[in-house]
Write a protein that binds this DNA or RNA. Structure first.
Lengths: 340, 340
DNA sequence: CTGTTAGCGCGTTCAC
DNA sequence: GTGAACGCGCTAACAG
């Protein structure tokens, strides 16, 4: 039965005081470099690491503000759940979270700005935002001492501590992979606003992997976001091109209109459709075979990662974090239920 | 600025003592039921929960023993990593782990028994086993006061606290899904020992989902585990049946011999092969298109889950856990690198 | 059944 | 630059 080793026992061993040992592990404290070195070496030999719980116990609570500016309910609900899960795991480290969910129907961007002002003024250690891309507003946070983290959408590094998104290049590649596995050769790409980083990165990796797999992307189609109902347009678009393609990849979240159009004109399995994300409305098309598979961004995991990494950074368990790019998941008829 | 609420402030509020409040949250302690009720109610009103860190701080360290009886290195390496990751997240709760890895080439089952004896005799709170299925040996643990948890292979509930495996039924269904998406109709199933729960459950769900998707499983083939090299047998087997099938699902981990046989006789994409798990040797066949996709069991996550859930149970953060059945992941050329 | 008190392992004042 | 002492929030041991 080896004796339990703490800063006290270590100090005794080294003929130093507990506070010296304590300080050795905190780079911001003043301590004779020579002493520090000896202590860290000894700690290493004993395999000793300070208990972060006991340490947090005597330190201040860390506050993190969450702003979700939500458009699509199932989407931001996942975000919320992910944050709550991460918070629950970390709450014992004295980490508090102040979650504000503003549905877009009811709140303006000015309301968002007010929330961020509030966070900053309360001197929260960190702020997580999702669904708000206006850099003028986000500056409220990035110009303050609060650390900014973006979920779902990548922000430039100089504005934020890091972003937690899915991997866009991986998504494009994986879509191409599966279309090739299905033996498809001539593909259509339905995408969102191509000027956005997100969609252009997905497009590029999709095109590249398609070529690598000897497939042709015959056309790229981005309907304007402002159009409220794509159904008719999509229907005409697809009808005109019937026979010139055998696979479709839809990167936009608004896939339903396109699915409907496909279903009208094709039997299940006649062409292969790969969509993005899962939500109640799309499961119908997965079930009936209109959509063969979805690439799921896992917003839950993105939010969870964002909160966890930010919190650990704030309590100094990690250095400055990298951007996080989560690998999306393939979803088919059998497993969508796990992620809905 | 609301005052921070602790067992002391709560006690004051209720005209009771801190220890009464403390006891109220531990069901095993003696306390006037009436008092307990009042305290719990008040706590609920204030949204107060005892800080589990501070609580653990004054309690004994929990010891967990890990026994990995390993056959295939990449496999048990993942298990080890998963355990270590979970342990790292929980170490602050004063949870220690004693990991013993016994490669099968060097150690007998008697050696395993000795390790388990050691764990039990040291009164470890819990024991995680992987790769050892002999119930006579496992009884050493399940008859003791240490809680037994099985990773990768399901043990009967009366023997263990819970098992952490992948979902067998999900695996079978997902394999069928993807074969259908690829437009396949007549399938071969290569499986392991069908008398084992694992393989029979996968088989059953595969057959069921295949039928649901209007596909035929023309033959089920389980080569004896004792055979050291399946290559020739597999080659003959496949040659004889050429033209009678267009898809293969391999549930056994030893897929390489079958892949080799397929590669010799088919061009990439001529038939669709779905394999199980990923490891260095199989990536070659994924790259060249012999294998279209793998269903990955994620041993890392299984081990991580096992350790985490067991630890949280032992420190009373959770009630008696359910068996864990993780959804396997689809792997293709682009994303295998993430899980290797 | 209940109250008191001494730690659990560490960071942080504040004197020195 | 360095050490002593207090406190973080809670439980255990003991005395009542």
């Amino acid at each position: 039965m080896e004796k339990k080793i703490t800063i006290y026992t270590l100090a005794e061993e080294l003929q130093m005081t507990p506070s010296a040992v304590s300080r050795a592990f905190n780079p911001n404290t003043r301590l004779d470099p020579e002493k520090r070195k000896r202590i860290l070496e000894a700690a290493d030999r004993y395999g000793f690491r300070p208990n972060r719980m006991a340490s947090r116990l005597s330190m201040d609570t860390v506050q993190i503000g969450i702003l979700i500016y939500g458009g699509f309910f199932p989407f931001y609900q996942k975000i919320e759940e992910g944050i709550r899960a991460a918070h629950a795991r970390l709450v014992d480290y004295k980490i508090e979270c102040d979650m504000r969910i503003l549905p877009r129907e009811q709140y303006s961007r000015e309301d968002c700005a007010a929330v961020l002002q509030d966070f900053v003024q309360k001197k929260y250690g960190g702020v997580v935002v999702c669904g708000l891309y206006d850099t003028n507003i986000l500056k409220i946070v990035s110009d303050s001492s609060s650390k900014l983290v973006s979920v779902h959408y990548p922000l430039p590094r100089e504005m934020c501590l890091f972003s937690s998104t899915h991997s866009f290049t991986m998504a494009g590649q994986m879509a191409a992979d599966i279309l090739q596995i299905c033996g498809r050769k001539r593909l259509l790409l339905f995408t969102g606003d191509q000027s956005s980083v997100v969609h252009s990165r997905i497009r590029d990796s999709f095109l590249k992997q398609a070529e690598h797999c000897s497939m042709q992307v015959t056309e790229i189609c981005d309907f304007p976001e402002t159009m409220t109902d794509w159904s008719e347009t999509a229907e005409g678009f697809i009808a005109e091109r019937k026979g010139t393609f055998d696979g479709i990849y839809i990167t936009t979240g608004r896939s339903i209109d396109i699915c409907r159009a496909v279903k009208k004109q094709y039997a299940p399995g006649e062409i292969t459709v790969i969509a993005t994300d899962i939500y109640t409305e799309i499961t119908e098309y997965i079930e009936d075979g209109t959509v063969s598979a979805c690439l799921f961004q896992n917003q839950y995991a993105q939010a969870e990662t964002a909160f966890e990494v930010l919190a650990k950074y704030l309590i100094k368990h990690t250095d400055i974090p990298e951007d996080k790019a989560l690998t999306p998941l393939y979803i088919t008829r059998s497993n969508y239920i796990e992620y809905l």
